[in-house]
Design a binder for these strands. Sequence first.
DNA 1: CCTACCGATCGGTAGG
DNA 2: CCTACCGATCGGTAGG
Lengths: 165, 165
Amino acid sequence: MRDLSEAVGIRPGSLYSHISSKEHLLLGIVETGITSFIDAIRPVVDEDLPAEEKLREALRAHMRVLDGQVEQTRVTFHQWQYLGPVNRPKALAVREEWESLFTRIVADGIASGEFRPREHFRLTVLMIAGILGSATEWYRPSGRSSPEEIADAIHDQIVGGLTSG
Amino acid sequence: MRDLSEAVGIRPGSLYSHISSKEHLLLGIVETGITSFIDAIRPVVDEDLPAEEKLREALRAHMRVLDGQVEQTRVTFHQWQYLGPVNRPKALAVREEWESLFTRIVADGIASGEFRPREHFRLTVLMIAGILGSATEWYRPSGRSSPEEIADAIHDQIVGGLTSG
DNA sequence: CCTACCGATCGGTAGG
DNA sequence: CCTACCGATCGGTAGG
């Protein structure tokens, strides 16, 4: 909180006329962080597109948002676990809403026959979420690959695998 | 450190006749943690097997080690970032050694023609690492799926993708 | 391994 | 938004 107050140019104690507690501030960062991903991806999910295209556009939307807020996303994806028993469930609820968007894309794709049926279908979603979560760590906005290039490489890997394409 | 001392049944200050500092203790946990994965996976990489089989066995080895030490692995994969500038590079070096095992499997598979060539080949390794890192969060040893089942589902997804198999 | 303690830092508040 | 401060907790040490 001292670092924070210095960054915004006020005294440590004065922060508390803007926020109610350190933890509530963290919750806010996490909630608005995930919400920005949800807002970017949901329109894609609602579109009338083949599942494969939907997944590609959803991944692109994700990477574009990440590109614009890497630091907040690092907090969003990894620091919610330090919330207390009152606020952690709130953060988890929003996170599950985000995950459910990918669940819908994959489930619809299987239902329509575009994707092959999978025994551990929930695992596929966990893997996509895991890849995007880890991308938060290694993605650099200043890197040589654009958000879209990275998104398409992820898409290609998830859809085509190592053998086909 | 107070929690820790209580858990082992000695006074807080007495910990320091066993360890030199809190951070050095963390480094030890991280280093031995990753090393146990490396030790389990390296023999597989050195075997004479098709790349696809190598990847399957490496993933199984990983999930078996994870199954035996979930808590230590959570520290290993996520808490090394809290090490200072002196010790973080040491932890990163071991982590990169772990990652390099998967790099070799994928690179060999591409070289032998078993896997299709990929533009962003390093990305594939980052995705595998990301999936295994996230598995640390959702894997439950008491769950209905064995380590091998999970490993094979991950293998199936990475190799076959969503469409072929 | 214990007793006793240190200085630093933490989130947060009272009163203006 | 500031001054001034609180009690709690932190990693760690001296001396036995």
